[in-house]
Structure formats: structure tokens, C-alpha cells
Design a protein around this nucleic acid. Structure first.
Lengths: 146, 146
DNA sequence: TATTGTTATACTCTATAACTATA
DNA sequence: TATAGTTATAGAGTATAACAATA
């Protein structure tokens, strides 16, 4: 009956398992942090990429974030319908769309990033600045592998 | 057109984002590593917990792994149907089930853990032993928060 | 021919609410 | 009345295949 804490067996020494749990915990708190904005992790990711790369192609954003082309469509539709992103036919390639943040999009992005900073501080409260930097660096090296 | 690598903007310094990507990369390679076994991350997690806690209650496994009761049902059904887990009415509480690995379940668990060790070595190739330990420790402290 | 975006679709994971049988 | 497990269902997230317009 779970009166005592259970042993995690082989799981406790697996980085992949801890990664999964930590990522899940972050996702949950992220969801709370976005309450009222209508934004989700993926959408904020897109806003961040578009802000940092004005006139970026829709497909390129998907590649950068690991989102399949087919799934980008409705995501971009959401952002355009919300007035956060402007979608124009690309000058060089009439098949493609170039994306840029609107004023409202940039306001939303800044608002979300501020909320996310608080969220990260909350989640990483047990880690000092050096440990956070180490974690970021180690995670970055994993991602580079994939 | 993504000719050049894009800037990740505010994303690059967010632990949550890196966590999400790293966790996704692990999940993908994990999936490959399990090819042919019929196992998934959650199922191996359950096998590990049940092995480490014989006669453990179904609900307790869910709590430990962060799986909702409603979602445990079909997962345990899968494992019972595959002959990997034995489900008995608990002696102390006839509402509850106690779970134990079968011989086949223990064989499967060992097989999976061996594959997972290779998978972790693959994913963490860029990190030495000390860095892996650091990563595990830092991730553990995040999880404790949630 | 190949590529960009699109549509349709399907499968997994996760979440909630209402039910049953025991306690 | 509370709890363990169950059922049904709904929402994200992610995957593939086939299509139109353009390169």
C-alpha cells in the first residue's frame, strides 16, 4: 500500500529515467506558469525562434525545434489567428512562408519569458548558479549527440 | 530556408527547454533500443519497480512512477497478458492487487536493462564518468522538488 | 523530379469523471 | 464515507502518406 517509499531498483541509476521525470516535472510547472496566456511549450518555442530570426521560413523553424512539417501547420495557424505571428509568402520562394513576430507577438513572448524565468527559478531552487550552468552545459552536450 | 543554423534566442539559456530536447532524444533512442522486445519506457519502469518491491500494490507502483490510477489498468493488463507480471488479490485488502514478476518477467527485465545500459552509453558518450554522476545528481535534486 | 506547405489520419500519453467493490 | 481498481472518453503530441503549387 505504499506505506513506505518504494525502491526504484535499476531505475535509480539511469540518466534517461531521471531526465524523463525532471522533464515531466518542468512541463507540469510550465503549464501552470503559462496559465491565462493561452501559450504552451511548443508555441513559446516558436515565438522565441521567430523573434531571434525575423522572416524565418516556417519549415526552418520546424527543423530547429524538431517539429514535423505536417504538425507545424496548425501551430502556426494558432499563432497567426492569435495575432502573434505574421505569415507572408517568401520573396525568394513562392512555395514558402516567412514568419515574423507582430507587436502583440513580441509582447507575448516577453511576458512568457518573464514567467518562464520565475518558473525556472522555482524548479531549480535547489541548485546554485554554478550548478545550473553545469546542468545546462551537460544537457547541451547530450542534445548535440542526437 | 534554413541554409544557416538558426539562433535559438531566449531558448538557449533555459534548462527546461534543454531538458525537453534531451529527454526527447533519449526517448527516441530508447525506442530503438527496445526494438523486438515489445517494451516501452513505462513498461520497463513498472518491471523495475515490481522487481525491486515484490508483492507491491498496483496503486503504489503508479504513485512511484507518476502514473495515474486510470492509466495503470491497461499497462498492467499488457504486462499480465504478456506473462511478465503476476497479479493477485492482496491478502490484507481485497480491493487491491499485489504485483510480482514472473520468471519471464525477470528475464525480460534483465534483457531490457542490458539494452538500456548500451543505450545510455550511446547517449552519454560525450560525458565522462564524473560528468554522468554529476548529471544524475543534479537531475535527482530537480525531481525531489516536484 | 524535388521541395513547401497542406490535409487527413492514427497512435501514444496523459487527464478527468463516473462507476463497482470493498474498507 | 473513503479508497482500489475500472471504464469511457477527451486532449495533447507526434508520426506517416498522399496531394497541390512551385522550384
Amino acid at each position: 500500500m505504499a506505506r513506505n517509499a518504494l525502491s526504484f531498483g535499476a531505475l535509480s541509476s539511469l540518466v534517461g529515467y531521471r531526465l524523463r521525470r525532471a522533464s515531466g516535472a518542468f512541463a507540469l510547472d510550465f503549464h501552470d506558469a503559462m496559465k491565462g496566456t493561452g501559450m504552451r511549450q511548443v508555441l513559446v518555442g516558436i515565438l522565441a525562434i521567430v523573434e531571434a530570426n525575423p522572416r524565418v521560413n516556417q519549415g526552418a523553424v520546424g527543423v530547429a525545434l524538431g517539429i514535423k512539417r505536417a504538425n507545424m501547420v496548425s501551430l502556426i495557424n494558432e499563432l497567426v489567428d492569435a495575432g502573434l505571428v505574421e505569415r507572408e509568402v517568401s520573396a525568394d520562394d513562392r512555395r514558402a512562408f516567412s514568419l515574423t513576430l507582430t507587436g502583440a507577438g513580441e509582447t507575448m513572448r516577453k511576458n512568457c519569458i518573464a514567467r518562464i524565468q520565475e518558473h525556472e527559478d522555482r524548479m531549480l531552487a535547489a541548485l546554485d548558479a554554478e550548478e545550473r550552468a553545469t546542468l545546462l552545459r551537460l544537457l547541451g552536450r547530450i542534445e548535440a549527440k542526437a
